[in-house]
Amino acid sequence: MISSLHRILIIARNTLTEAVRQKVLNVLLIFGLVLICSSVTVSQLATPDIDAAGLFSEQIKFVKDFGCGAIGLFGFFIALLSTALLIPQELDKRTIYTILAKPVRRAEFLLGKFVGVVLLLALSVALMSLAFAATLYWQESVGLAAVEANYAQMDLKHTPTAQSMHDHDAAQIIKQVRDPQLVEAVLLIFAKIVMTAAIGLLISTFATSWIFTIITTFMIYLIGHGESLARTFWLSHGAETTIWQSGLIGLIALLIPDMNSFTIVDEILAGNRVPWHDVLNLLCYANVYVIVLLAVSVVIFDYREI
């Protein structure tokens, strides 16, 4: 048991080392970081007028949306490429022979690979989140400076109304920027890309080319965003359609993960309060789903001829 875990970790570390030394993934990560930081320039394109502009809520919304969008997008690409490239590479280049000829179980090899990819994703998401936080902080200081400038120009600046307006404006900017719910958002995004990686791993255990893995995983990801529609339709109208239709829709509902429920990240970004309870429920769902996907992958891989 312990030695089994030990072997998984050795393979995971090796996978992480390989990924970190691989150019494609590094370039992707750097693109993500640049995009996040450049969101401030994009946000400047929005209405610049402070009086009416709802206190930079537009700009702050931009930076948040872009930041989370970029973390999700580049995390997704990194997840897709690292699972689609790293494992078929082992088969292609036959490094897998040397590993599986050692006293290593196939399940250990596969789990090690997956843990390595998850570590890579955690690292990437952590780096991008750091860039995101820095960008938000910068946007906050711009906003606060503007509030000060606005206050300095105000007539009647010493009335309690002006004073409390100023304090309230500053507080609003800080409140929007330092939103603790962003932690929820980043966790949900991470869970979603880990799920993507698990889907990619499952596909690559039987795929013969990495292009097939990438395309199929991407399709499943897209269909996953419509799974909730398929599910509601199947549960309510299943009987009214032809066997083929309800079979296809049922298959989607039964097998494809629900990616759409992760769009509550949108609500978090829009400033709505999303209780931790719901977030944890979703994280659990993702977790269990990943375990099921891994179990299926192990079964397929155990019987694969290499």
Partner: peptide, 24 residues
């Protein structure tokens, strides 16, 4: 194996260390 290929990004020492650890 035939035409063996190992992790190109590791050096000789690292390679042996990796396989050694795998074997306990």
């Amino acid at each position: 194996p035939e035409n063996p290929y190992f992790y190109a990004f590791l050096n000789g020492d690292e390679t042996l260390r990796f396989y050694g650890k795998l074997c306990g």
